[in-house]
């Protein structure tokens, strides 16, 4: 599939979705559908979808322990074991998974290869993907947590604290959240590297762009709603609380931009369980990371292990007995 075709196909779908919500709440005026039914439906698909997918994964056995060792394994007592990159026990595995999930340990190793004159290969550090990846995920997380203020009354103090620190640099009024900027920049970087770096452009699929465009559209509509076409946050909260308490009602006068934002979020939620976005729960299941390198200490059981046909020693000796005896090898049967 042509790279630009992929980009435009994905862009087109996201614009189409935006348009659907714009027309749906504007001219059609179906606010009940976009404010109540679709969000409920999306929430159900999101949670059920993820749970089903996780159950599907969990039901598939792990026949072998194929831990990737990234450091010295546990062996002789005087040799120092690297328990984080090559864990030999559960604590090590927890540590390794922590580093992987929270700090993107493996991505931090990234290097960039360059081939120079005379077939000279050099390697440079390449931490940009790690940096923007981590900024993207943490700002996303912060923004999601910040949104809890719409669903809770009274607001938990940690949500207040997050909002307080996030808006600490009061650049503009109303407060511009730091994470909003970082989030858009990081997602923008992830998009740009996909189209600018030839290898990444070559291997990217429409779905890679779709996820990014959808997320960017959510971010942009959110910022617009705060800074440009302001919506009444108290009414938004009323709607959110209504949804959360299963007594949904559509308050009057929330701007259309809000429904667009909400609809795009719903699209992301529905798309999530069926897409590569499942890497989030998936990383916890990765057998090269979540198993201890204790293979020779503890037997790993394969539930479908089955007997196989082998060539036995008896058959072997039958074939070679006379020749074995001729060179003085002991035999079992004379």
């Amino acid at each position: 599939m042509n790279a630009w075709y992929s980009v435009f196909a994905a862009l087109f779908i996201v614009l189409f979705l935006t348009l659907v919500s714009l027309i749906g709440v504007g001219p059609v005026g179906a606010k009940g559908i976009f404010g109540i039914y679709i969000p409920y439906l999306a929430a159900v698909v999101f949670f059920v979808g993820i749970v089903v997918r996780i159950i599907q994964w969990a039901k598939v056995p792990v026949p072998f322990n194929i831990c990737t060792t990234g450091g010295q394994g546990k062996s002789l007592p005087w040799i120092k074991n690297d328990n984080l990159d090559c864990p030999h026990n559960t604590w090590g595995v927890i540590g390794r998974m922590f580093l992987e999930v929270f700090l993107f340990r493996s991505l931090f190793r990234n290097t960039k290869a360059q081939l120079g004159q005379g077939a000279k290969l050099t390697f440079a550090s390449a931490k940009w993907l790690w940096l923007f990846g981590i900024l993207f995920h943490y700002s996303f997380l912060t923004i999601v947590l910040r949104h809890l203020r719409f669903f809770t009354e009274p607001m938990p103090s940690f949500v207040q604290w997050i909002s307080y620190f996030d808006g600490f640099f009061e650049l503009l009024l109303p407060t511009v959240f730091l994470t909003d900027i970082v989030f858009l920049l990081a997602a923008g970087y992830l998009f740009l590297r996909r189209v600018v770096i030839p290898q990444i452009r070559y291997l990217s699929l429409p779905s890679d762009y779709f996820a990014l465009f959808l997320i960017l559209a959510i971010g942009i509509s959110g910022v617009l709603m705060r800074q440009v076409w302001k919506v009444d946050l108290l009414q938004v909260k009323e709607l959110a609380l209504g949804l959360a308490s299963f007594r949904p009602a559509i308050p009057q006068g929330i701007g259309d931009i809000f429904y667009i934002h909400l609809f795009l979020v719903c699209c992301l939620a529905v798309y999530f369980p069926f897409s590569k976005l499942m890497h989030a729960p998936g990383v916890f299941f990765s057998p090269t990371r979540n198993l201890a390198n204790n293979n020779r200490m503890v037997r790993h059981i394969n539930p479908w292990n089955y007997p196989v046909k082998v060539h036995t020693y008896e058959e072997y000796e039958d074939e070679y007995r006379e020749k074995m005896k001729a060179v003085g090898l002991p035999v079992d049967k004379e």
């Binding site: 598939v60 792990v62 993907l129 990217s204 699929l205 057998p287």
Partner: peptide, 23 residues
């Protein structure tokens, strides 16, 4: 796909970030 969680998972979760490309 039903016997190897590794295989199933590796089919599902790649985000095509390209970190492996020049490795």
């Amino acid at each position: 796909l039903e016997k190897y969680r590794s295989f199933r998972l590796f089919m599902d979760i790649c985000v095509r970030c390209g970190a492996c490309a020049d490795k």
